[in-house]
Design a protein around this nucleic acid. Structure first.
Length: 566
RNA sequence: UGGGGUGUGGCCAAGCGGUAAGGCAUCGGCCUUUGGAGCCGAGAUUCGGAGGUUCGAAUCCUCCCGCCCCAGCCA
């Protein structure tokens, strides 16, 4: 694994708890965590934070981390999701070895424990309907009322429970409930439901079960059976902790893990909830779960994010209990920081403008040396063909240059990276007045980008030899939403109304240097002066397709935007 | 008007009674064959507010205020 674990994680509050536990000899000094997704959707950057936290803790304290699927609600869950989740966790760089578990693996034991609870008078079968249970539960400020079934004798509950399992009753006829306290100020303690009847086929157990355990009942037991020491979950489960402890205190389980809650990750200009993600995918607002505009792990991967960058991000945002909204700029920074070190530099002209070097012989081709990565001399160099006709970026020429514009304009000289100085002598326009070609002259003495007289040039542009260029499609992405936080807008509107209409821009006829045609997904490169790009899975050598993962920082764009460049 | 949490610069986040780390972003400057990268520097007299304890408080106490979560047979 890369060395991002040297990032000095610092002591977040969870690490502090763990170190105290180790010092106190709790759990025999053992650290055992788990990542427990429900297989009902694709993983996103928020899950990545949890994955990095749980697996990172195990790594740093010589412990273990399990992968466990919390699959207690058939119908919502599917193998498609378990497969994608495993692939994503692996891609992120984590390994659960042989410790792959499913809550559904515990259905038999969960059932035995339920009978135990009934026998010890801690649970009863309730005949109230879902609506009645809600009514009996009371409200936030008023206590609930006992169910008429609450005092049902244990043997009667046991009999009913067995018949629930045997399929004697229709869905919803009965439910198994814990007997705790209907007047508890914590609603989760007002005789929560343990089991419900559900005639639904399960993706792993098929039709073997007709009753399914609830998350709140299943989770503590699963944790205990796996010997988990620290059960880390998100803030909304804080109120569930008393019940988590109640279950473990009332059952003969091997150990009593500690539940610890942290704040989930929020990022601006995007959506993270499964519901919204699913809606965007199903209604076709994006191309699928792996659409590069989505912060799903699959989307980030396709966008060209590296696992190293995502891990560094998870480390950098920290772990705390306060709800926060992290700036997307931090995620982008983490990608740039990783890729700057290792991405090979390549030349690619996205919006081409023809340049003809009038004093360069037609038909002549020479090769110039180009470094592959100035940050890493070990990356070596490559040869680039230079000829009379070239492509440069349209943005690199201005007929009427504003102040502080360092690039090419009539009569001005710039350097073509790694090649020669060129001067713009003439601007060729079409009938509509559009600039279609630049006639330039080059300084033969400036080969490599230096001149003997030492004269300086303000700008350096990337370029591609027209005769040698490879045509490609390049997809540019921008923020998914046009506002940082839809929930913070004055008027409450559906989040889809805040979708950024320009989140995807497809460029065709981009001109790439030859080496790029063979690029494969998962390889990272920098298009010089533009950003980091990665081949899309749609890409073929005959028809290359690239995704822009993130732009480079752009000082000129800032100057222009601030109005200084006028 | 129940319960559980949480409030430190624009965004994150350390700090746990001894006089406000760090990162991102921003703004200057240097450097530069990427207006990239790198380097240097700037910014909270102040920690939601008000009182109190103390030689000393972001840290302890009291009261107040804001924000988040909870009334699924979802997880």
């Amino acid at each position: 694994m890369a060395n991002d674990e040297n990032l000095a994680p610092g002591l977040n509050f969870i690490r502090a708890i763990i170190e105290d536990d180790i010092k106190a000899g709790k759990n025999g000094g053992r650290v055992h965590t788990r990542f427990p997704p429900e297989p009902n959707g694709y993983l996103h950057i928020g899950h990545a934070k949890s994955i990095c936290l749980n697996f990172g803790l195990a790594r740093d304290y010589q412990g273990l981390c399990n992968l466990r699927f919390d699959d207690t609600n058939p119908g919502k869950e599917d193998v498609e999701y378990v497969d994608s989740i495993m692939a994503d966790v692996r891609w992120l760089g984590f390994d659960w070895a042989e410790r792959l578990y499913y809550a559904s693996d515990y259905f038999d034991r969960l059932y035995e424990f339920a009978e135990h609870l009934i026998r010890s008078g801690k649970a009863y079968v309730c005949a109230l309907s879902a609506e009645q249970i809600r009514a009996y539960r009371g409200t936030l400020t008023e206590p609930g009322q006992d169910s008429p079934c609450r005092e049902r004798p244990a043997d009667e509950s046991l009999d009913l429970f067995r018949r629930m399992r045997a399929g004697e009753f229709p869905d919803g006829a009965y439910v198994l409930r814990a007997k705790i306290d209907m007047a508890s100020p914590n609603l989760n303690m007002r005789d929560p439901v343990l089991y419900r009847i559900r005639r639904e086929s399960h993706h792993r157990t098929g039709d073997r079960w007709l009753i399914y355990p609830m998350y709140d009942y299943t989770h503590p037991i699963s944790d205990a059976l796996e010997g988990i020491t620290h059960s880390i979950c998100t803030l909304e489960f804080e109120d569930h902790r008393p019940f988590y402890d109640w279950v473990l205190d009332n059952l003969p389980v091997p150990c009593h893990p500690q539940q610890i809650e942290f704040a989930r990750l929020n990022l601006n200009y995007t959506v993270m909830s499964k519901r919204k993600l699913l809606e965007l995918v199903e209604k076709g607002f994006v191309r699928g779960w792996d659409d590069p505009r989505l912060l799903t792990i699959a989307g980030l991967r396709r966008r060209g994010y590296s696992p190293e960058a995502i891990r560094a991000f998870a480390e950098t945002v920290g772990v705390a209990k306060r709800e926060s909204m992290v700036d997307m700029a931090l995620l982008e920074h983490c990608l740039r920081e990783d890729l700057n070190r290792r991405a090979l530099r390549r030349m690619a002209v996205l919006r081409p403008l023809k340049v003809v070097i009038t004093n360069y012989p037609a038909g002549r081709v020479e090769e110039v040396d180009a470094e592959n990565n100035p940050e890493d001399p070990g990356a070596g160099t490559r040869k680039l063909p230079f000829s009379r006709e070239l492509w440069i970026e349209q943005d690199d020429f201005r007929e009427d240059p504003p102040k502080k514009f360092f690039r090419l304009s009539p009569g001005k000289e710039i350097r073509l990276k790694h090649a020669y100085y060129i001067r713009c002598d003439e601007v060729v326009k079409d009938g509509a007045g559009n600039v279609v070609e630049l006639r330039c002259s080059y300084d033969p003495e400036s080969r490599g980008g230096w001149t003997k007289d030492g004269r300086k040039v303000l700008g350096t542009s990337h370029w591609v030899s027209a005769a040698h260029a490879v045509d490609a499609e390049v997809r540019l992405y921008d923020k998914l939403l046009s506002v940082p936080d839809p929930a913070a807008e004055k008027e409450e509107r559906d989040f889809k109304e805040y979708l950024n209409p320009d989140s995807l821009e497809i460029l065709k006829g981009c001109k790439l240097e030859g080496a790029l045609a063979a690029a494969k997904p998962g390889e990272y490169c920098q298009f010089l002066r533009q950003g980091y790009f990665s081949a899309d899975p749609d890409s073929t050598p005959e028809r290359p397709v690239f995704n822009r993962s993130v732009t480079l920082r752009d000082t000129w764009a800032k100057i222009e935007k601030s109005g200084q460049g006028k």
